[in-house]
Amino acid sequence: MQDMLIILFSAILVNNFVLVKFLGICPFLGVSKKLDSAVGMSFAVIFVMVLATAVTYPIHMGLLVPLQIGYLQTIIFILVIAALVQLVEIALKKYVPALHQSLGVYLPLITTNCAVLGVTILNIDESYTYIQSLVNSFGAGVGFLLAMVLFSGIRQRIENNNFPAAFKGIPSVLIAASIVSLAFMGFSGVIDGLFGL
């Protein structure tokens, strides 16, 4: 149980996918203008991350490893994720139209989100078990949500601030991201303290 919690909290705080590992920067900068779209995007990311891990992990362990074609990992994984996202979108549209309304617009954007492919490959590289992989993916998604929510709040505050002309727009957003990322560095020892390691 404890090792699960360690994986979960490391993924959320210490190894935050966006602010420490630089995965999923495009949606982080592009979709964080408004809080509700930031939250919608993040929930779609959490959902797809866990689902993608649930599917790619057995494929890797049960198919690629026994057949010794591990080098096809990148091709297989991205295809599976792309197909999965399409499938989820179709299923949501048909069976849960309300959810499709709120998450659907973000789903096509997630196919080419490096955070999703990144988490599936990382789970294999770190040689996690199946359950640990799922926990890690969930944590990574929650970390993404945390970063998005925090950052959309900050962006709304700085939107109309009086920056020097050259810093208006994206440069100011990047500098703000730098400061948020600095704050996240403070979490680096928190796991040891939390679990008395």
């Binding site: 602010l19 630089f22 994206i170 440069p171 990047l174 996240f184």
Partner: peptide, 26 residues
């Protein structure tokens, strides 16, 4: 580290903005 990456990129984009008077990226 991570903060330095965001900061450097932000400054570079600002520099481009400054040199092109905001026309390139706007």
């Amino acid at each position: 580290l991570a903060p330095g990456a965001f900061f450097t990129y932000g400054c570079l984009v600002a520099l481009i903005n400054y040199l092109t008077e905001g026309k390139a990226i706007k």
